Amino acid sequence: MLKSTAVVPEPPVRTRPTQIRLLVVGRECDAIDRAFDDETEVTVESVPTLESARPRFDDIDCLVVQSPTTAANGTEDRGESGERTDDTTRDTPTDNGSAGDVADRLETIRTDAPELPVVVLADELTLALTRTVRSDGWTAIVERDETLALFPDRVHDLLERRRLTTLARRSLASVEFAGDAIAIVDPDGDVQFASRSFAMQFGSDRDALTGTPWRALFTDAAVSHLESAALPTVAEGWRWTGSCTGRRQTGATFPARVRLGGLEDDSLVFAVDESKGSDGLEE
């Protein structure tokens, strides 16, 4: 039988920057500038193309790009300057076409800046476009009609996640010296960072472990228990401790003591120690 304990959570601390540097590819600068409150000093600049934005990635906090403007119901497709373009006679772009254009832009951005926060402004949140954005962990999407209401929160969420990620990396670097077996799992459920000791316990190396679903590291019964007992506890702001059975890459299992906590961006922190002389989880 599994035993678990919960620890009273510490009050969360969320830090919002007082200065933000935004670079917009195309127009929309005025609406974006008006979206932020007076407590945030926002610098908004624009460039005509993504290519002209690339040399400035290191100097900004967030990049704003736009999905292709949909020309529907007799409206004209206008270029980034707001003027009618030569392409207004084209058929309305399909959902997949718009998503593909955004995917191409993100691929270009990630070549130079893998973790630069990006916000996509779209006429409509189509399923294809939403999936494209969600596949990139550092991108959010906002409908143009909701720019004033939602845009600041999307930017702050991305910047907070980047701050927490930086802190997590520093923490992992420090625990390497102590030999602690710790991993950070992103909100999608995949290992984002792992200490050397953590990777060794699961018969892997750190690079190979990155991107692995955390559920692949435990037996089915252990996963079921973590999902039913540990995750709800963490979601309420507590830390959870219990016994589980881990699974190495070879398929071999081992009894483990697991400590589980959460970060403000819904990432998880796993600390796993092999329990010598214990049978672990009864399956």
Rank of each mutant, 00 (worst) to 15 (best):
Ala122Gln: 12
Asp95Tyr: 13
Leu129Lys: 14
Asp123Leu: 00
Thr111Pro: 02
Thr92Asn: 13
Leu125His: 14
Ala113Thr: 06
Thr130Ala: 14
Ser98Pro: 00
Val119Ile: 07
Asp91Ile: 03
Leu106Glu: 04
Arg110Trp: 03
Asp91Phe: 05
Ala128Asn: 02
Pro117Gln: 04
Gly97Asn: 08
Asp123Lys: 00
Leu125Asn: 12
Val102Met: 06
Asn96Gly: 10
Leu129Val: 11
Leu127Tyr: 12
Ala99Cys: 08
Thr108Ala: 11
Arg134Lys: 11
Val133Leu: 09
Thr94Arg: 05
Leu116Cys: 11
Ser98Tyr: 04
Thr130Pro: 11
Val120Met: 10
Thr94Leu: 09
Leu116Phe: 01
Arg105Leu: 09
Arg110Glu: 02
Pro93Gly: 04
Pro93Thr: 07
Pro114Cys: 13
Val133Ala: 12
Asp91Ala: 07
Ala113Gly: 10
Val133His: 02
Glu124Ser: 09
Leu121Thr: 07
Arg110Met: 02
Val102Asn: 06
Thr111His: 10
Thr92Trp: 06
Thr94Asn: 05
Thr111Ala: 09
Asp91Gln: 14
Asp101Tyr: 15
Asp91Asn: 10
Val133Pro: 03
Ile109His: 10
Asp104Tyr: 03
Leu125Ala: 15
Ile109Lys: 07
Ala99Asn: 10
Asn96Trp: 02
Val120Glu: 10
Thr108Cys: 09
Asp101Glu: 13
Val119Thr: 01
Pro114Phe: 15
Pro93Trp: 09
Glu107Asp: 06
Thr130Lys: 12
Asp112Pro: 00
Ile109Glu: 09
Pro117Arg: 04
Asp101Trp: 14
Val120Pro: 06
Thr92Gly: 08
Asp123Phe: 00
Leu127Met: 08
Ala128Met: 01
Gly97Val: 08
Thr126Met: 07
Val120Lys: 02
Pro117Ser: 04
Leu129Ile: 11
Ala99Met: 10
Thr126Ser: 14
Ala103Arg: 09
Leu121Ile: 06
Thr111Arg: 04
Asp112Val: 03
Gly97Thr: 11
Glu107His: 00
Thr130Glu: 15
Arg105Glu: 14
Asp101Ala: 12
Gly100Val: 01
Asp112Ile: 01
Arg131Met: 03
Pro93Gln: 10
Glu124Ile: 06
Asp104Pro: 00
Arg105Phe: 07
Arg105Pro: 00
Pro114Lys: 12
Asp95Glu: 15
Asp95Thr: 12
Asp112Gln: 06
Asp91Tyr: 08
Thr108Gln: 15
Thr130Trp: 15
Arg105Ala: 10
Gly97Leu: 11
Thr132Gly: 01
Arg134Asp: 13
Asp95Val: 12
Arg134Val: 03
Gly97Tyr: 08
Val102Lys: 03
Val118Phe: 02
Ala122Pro: 02
Asn96Asp: 14
Glu124Val: 06
Gly97Ala: 14
Thr108Glu: 15
Arg110Ile: 00
Thr132Lys: 00
Asp123Glu: 02
Asp112Met: 04
Thr94Glu: 09
Leu121Cys: 08
Asp91His: 08
Leu127Cys: 05
Ala122Trp: 05
Pro114Tyr: 15
Leu116Val: 09
Val120Cys: 07
Asp95Gln: 15
Thr132Arg: 01
Ser98Thr: 06
Ile109Ala: 07
Ala113Asn: 11
Thr111Lys: 03
Val120Thr: 07
Leu106Ser: 01
Gly100Tyr: 01
Leu129Trp: 05
Glu107Val: 00
Arg131Ala: 09
Leu129Pro: 06
Glu124Asp: 13
Pro93His: 07
Asp91Cys: 04
Ala103His: 09
Asp123Ser: 00
Gly100Cys: 04
Leu129Asp: 14
Thr130Val: 10
